[in-house]
Nucleic acid binder design. Structure first.
Ligand SMILES: [Zn+2]
Ligand SMILES: [Zn+2]
Ligand SMILES: [Zn+2]
Ligand SMILES: [Zn+2]
Lengths: 130, 130
DNA sequence: CTTAAATATGTTATATTATTACACAGCGTT
DNA sequence: AACGCTGTGTAATAATATAACATATTTAAG
């Protein structure tokens, strides 16, 4: 809650909207929804989104070009994200699995690369859609 | 090599191009390069790309909207991809790590979801860029 | 061999996603 | 006051991807 206070007007408006949705929102759908609040241009949305991603308040679902709020209060994990995505209903859930996180955090390739971030997306069918 | 034979003309042209590059190519850069071969429209490129992704000859790097050839001869793993991406020079490498693959293959969430695919992207700095 | 289904092609137009460029405002530091 | 930093507003445009339609080619079945 400490960073929340420092958000700007546009950032707050857009974060509020994303947090109210339990599913990912697309940039232009966000734009449509916030026009009534005086945000008129794509760039205003993208600027806020970029900032919110950067500080870990939201995550981008890369395979869907959509943005979802992070529910994890201790989210220093903007840099370590795992999602499950239903390919039928498009339901997206953020996964927090300690064991999996450990494995990913500790992963070393054989090229001497230094990792500071990862994003993992699982695809399949959710309970409802099986 | 058995599936290669069944590729169509456009699919072959585009796969050849991608295989000659060791780095991911973007759709419109592919389009530019294959114009001399009579492929004139984005849709012709995207159709070939979609097919090649589907049969595992290439993979899409989701965070970059780019396509890279799969070098793994036994690539039934179109549905289980891991990449390392250098955020400085944008070098991309496909990772085949047995242990990691096992963990990902065996991963079960607590929602009863049935996975059939995953994509993992590691970000950081490669040896050259550190 | 004929027919039907499935796959691929070519073309035009359009939708969707994202950034560049420019002008300026507010705030804290020096 | 001058500067750096972050944010805003606006217009224009770039980059990525798909819809819709007409036609051709390959494959599989009858
Ligand atoms: Zn999160
Ligand atoms: Zn579902
Ligand atoms: Zn591969
Ligand atoms: Zn590098």
């Amino acid at each position: 809650m400490q960073k929340q206070e420092t958000l700007s007007k546009n950032q707050k408006i857009i974060l509020d909207l994303i947090e109210k949705s339990d599913q990912p929102l697309k940039a232009y759908s966000i734009l449509f929804d916030v026009k009534k609040k005086g945000i008129n241009a794509p760039l205003q949305v993208y600027r806020a989104l970029n900032k919110l991603v950067k500080i870990g308040k939201i995550h981008k679902i890369e395979s869907r070009n959509a943005f979802i709020a992070c529910k994890n209060s201790k989210c220093q994990i903007a840099k370590a994200t795992v999602f499950s995505i239903c390919e039928s209903c498009e339901d997206v859930t953020e996964i927090h699995d300690h064991k999996l996180s450990e494995h990913l955090r500790d992963f070393k390739d054989n090229k001497g690369m230094k990792y500071n971030k990862y994003n993992l997306e699982f695809f399949g069918l959710c309970k409802k859609c099986i």
